[in-house]
Design a protein around this nucleic acid. Sequence first.
DNA 1: AATAATTTCGG
DNA 2: CGAAATTAT
Length: 481
Amino acid sequence: MSDDAAKPLILWFRKDLRLDDNHALHAACRTGRPIIPLYIREPSSSGTGPLGGAQAWWLHHSLASLTASIEALGGTLNLVSGDALDVLGAVIKKTGADTVMWNRRYDPPGIAIDTRIKRELEQQGLDAQSFAGQLLHEPSRLKTGGGTPYRVYTPFWRALEGAGEPPHPVDAPRKVEFGPELAASETLTSWKLLPTKPDWAKDFDEVWTAGEEAARERLADFLDESLDGYKSDRDFPARQSTSMMSPYLALGVISPARIWEETRGLDVPADDLVHFRKELAWREFSYHLLFHFPKLPYANWNDRFDGFEWSNSETHFRAWTKGMTGYPIVDAGMRQLWKHGFMHNRVRMIVASFLIKDLMIDWRRGEAWFRDTLVDADPASNAASWQWVAGCGADAAPFFRIFNPVLQGEKFDRDGAYVREFVPELAALDTKYIHKPFAAPQSVLDKADIRLGETYPKPIVDHATARDRALKAYNAVKDAA
DNA sequence: AATAATTTCGG
DNA sequence: CGAAATTAT
């Protein structure tokens, strides 16, 4: 027996901050060799992009939770910042490790980094092993009959259904043999991931608890209380009826295969179950698109939109970000985002439609704002969804599908509970006018102590006028080659 | 995962 | 004549 058997291996954590259903960890344990858990803080210049402010907060707490889980098993999560290849090289040199294991990531810059690392390590005679698990299926696996990537969601969903059940998750190991802590390990606080404006994220923890245990509890509560009726209830932002899994999925604190597994065999209407699974499939579709069209985060998927004349009104953009547009459902959504690092899905569509169609501001500015302020910021879902609303994406809503913020409010926030929660200056307004204070008689406004233009803004654009303007601008590009 | 305008339906 | 269905954007 050679002493190779005792050589440690590096388990490189990335967007898989979990012990459950972690195929790299599972494989590492099976080798019987000491494991060195490592998280590398890669510089944004490496191409992985700047870490959004809200997600930095979430990453801090998720890493703290993973550290605690690993410590409970007798190990340490080593934290090292720097270029990933340099860090891995240094750790290998220091520890004598000859193997690196990780779970694959699917954002194009991440893929490029990993491909290079794998090649370099193998050239040095080292072993680099990557595993699946961030998605239900590898993005290259599902193909149309013609062998091309899917461009339309429904056939993609059918293919996903027809691809057989996703792999069963593997449980977290009960025992792990760890290698020694690295001398180079840094402290989490030294990374300064928490926002420097302490008042910004102060309310995030009203809604978000980091870590695997919290994710599993939240999932269990959702499946127990909200899956029955999910298909219709999910559209009402004042109801607690969506799964809230996206922040956990974004950093891999829970795996999609685990979520899928937990939905098996439940006694709920098939419609509700399928609809929830279809939301997981939208995430898969987004990654499928990003994988096959790496420019998704910044280039119009449909390049006919390259000639679209966007507005560059900074005043309008700022009013949108602050939730001061004068349309209550839009403002409530933008303020929920600022307060909790999250926004209900229905409202995301409404505010995105408002930015793109009513303000005619480039979807990329909205995408960037969401990337910075969403705890669940995800390169695939965020980019694909903005392009979807803009009408320039794959299987997108046609551009002329323009949300009316008043009607959307009245339809999905009938009693105004959502608006009243996040736009407190309108809380006392008569329900009849809660989504259109600008149409309320003076006496009604007086009664609610609202002075339009002072305590709450007048609409920054007239929706009907803005709608016509957007349709005209669209007509100018729609017949272009 | 839409809305507004227009036409048809039912009384 | 208002509601529901259809159609254009």
